[in-house]
Amino acid sequence: MRQKRRSRPLREPYQSEHDGYYDGFGRPREASGGIKARVQRGAATSNWWSKRWLQALNRLIDPGRLQRGRSYARKGQVLTLDEAEDGLVTASVQGSQPRPYKVTIRLRPLTDEQWQRVINALASQAAFAAHLLAGTMPEDIEQAFAAAGVSLFPDRDADLETDCSCPDFANPCKHIAAVYYLLADRFDEDPFMIFRLRGRTQDEVLAELRRLRTPEGSAPPDHEAETPEAPLPLDSDPSRFWALGLPLDSIALQLTPPVVELPLLKRLGDPPFVVHASLQEILAPAYRAISEAALAAAFAEPDIAIAASDAAPAESAGDREPGA
């Protein structure tokens, strides 16, 4: 891993080797509003995918140095994280200096020929395309890459090009390491990000897979945007202006509890960005309370204040008894 140095510090060289904090430059400043990594000690909810990324990094980089970034990442010292169109990752990280440091990371893209081999391997099983299209990374994706003689994750020094404006000479510095951890989170949510960083967008990969599946390859029509409904002008005829367009009794309601509890959370699955517990567990009491209250409200007796006050006189007037 090469490290380009932007500026030379005016102080003596540091002597850090232990924990990232006490490297002679002092504690990092409190960062407010930074992005916190979800990486936990032995986190069960952390996706296998991001674990693989970190494993791959661990092979390339000194594990101790990687660790330094972890505490930064968990504390939220990374203030911004952006991905440019050409695959360059930039971030700003709050260090000990008042001004945050700028970090850039670039993965070396695969060559066209390498991608061709990968795509051929991906096309051999529907599972790959199916999972990618469904928004998850298939578990054996690396095997497909391996079959093409390529590694998806960086496995050589030459694969990673990084830079940081901090004065630390360490390799990687804790700022870059912190960004590595945050990238792990991003990969969780967006499996195709790793593809982009290695030179292909999702659309490009899918298009090539599609081409392999069926040779005719006309350009796919654009995903049709929902044409907004053209609102009808108001009708000035009073008999229609105030009236219903359809009889209401043709629309029925079903006020029942759900057949399966938490149906939507179950459909969606647990989100990766909620780490401290399962979202279903967290929100189940709320959903239940909402459902019960809704049913109670639906079946409540209407306020019978009006009816009751009429019932008494109506009863005695029931047979038109004057003065009864």
Binding site: L253, P258, L262, L264, I290, L295, A298
Partner: peptide, 26 residues
């Protein structure tokens, strides 16, 4: 009740249905 009140009445019943059936996402 005017027709518009009856209409919104039905829609509010639909809202209750969605709540009863837990058809909501955060």
């Amino acid at each position: 009740l005017g027709a518009d009140a009856r209409f919104w009445r039905l829609v509010s019943g639909l809202a209750l249905e969605a709540l009863a059936k837990q058809e909501l996402v955060p």
